[in-house]
């Protein structure tokens, strides 16, 4: 089981190194352990996270790609779909079985044909367009809805922090 997971992860790493999507790099933290990756994601242009480079950690289960990996930002984040501890809450990281009524399309959910690249691209679009119905960070969701200006201020502060520029 773990053998096929390892081969798949190696193939995905190779693919990401050869054709990296713009503004994203990802790879294993340590060659000895292919099940823990680090990724850097650039905040998409024209959004309040523009310019920032956000580090995150990806943990893969031994039965990957049957089960989805877990993703957690390792820098400070303030976003409606990211928990205070950095864990990311988006549908692609959930298996289709988590949806009780099967109403949500299974395309947006985890399946073995998804990939690390697709997850990271989904996270980029999540940064650009938060889903304020998900309650991962209620304060952020509320501020995103009611006080966009303040939200942007906080986001810019975080962007500077990731670049090591004093506010």
């Amino acid at each position: 089981m773990a053998g096929s997971a390892l081969r798949r992860l190696m193939a995905e790493y190779k693919q990401l190194t050869l054709n990296p999507p713009e503004g994203i790099i990802a790879g294993p933290i340590n060659e000895e352990n292919f099940f823990e990756w680090e990724a850097l994601i650039t905040g998409p242009e024209g959004t309040c996270f523009e310019g920032g480079v956000f580090p995150a950690k990806l943990i893969f289960p031994p039965d990957y790609p049957l089960s989805p990996p877990k993703m957690q930002f390792t820098c400070e984040m303030f976003h409606p779909n990211i928990y205070a501890d950095g864990r990311v809450c988006i549908s692609i990281l959930h298996a289709p079985g988590d949806d009780p009524m099967g109403y949500e399309s299974s395309a947006e959910r985890w399946s073995p044909v998804q990939s690390v690249e697709k997850i990271l691209l989904s996270v980029v679009s999540m940064l650009a367009e938060p889903n304020d119905e998900s309650g991962a960070n209620v304060d952020a969701a509320k501020m995103w809805r009611d006080d966009r200006e303040e939200f942007e201020k906080i986001a810019q502060k975080l962007v500077r922090k990731t670049l090591g520029i004093p506010p």
Partner: peptide, 16 residues
């Protein structure tokens, strides 16, 4: 692969 990944990381942050 690893060294270039670490380098790439540093380069990406520097450029940004």
């Amino acid at each position: 692969g690893t060294t270039s990944f670490q380098e790439k990381k540093a380069k990406m942050i520097q450029e940004a």
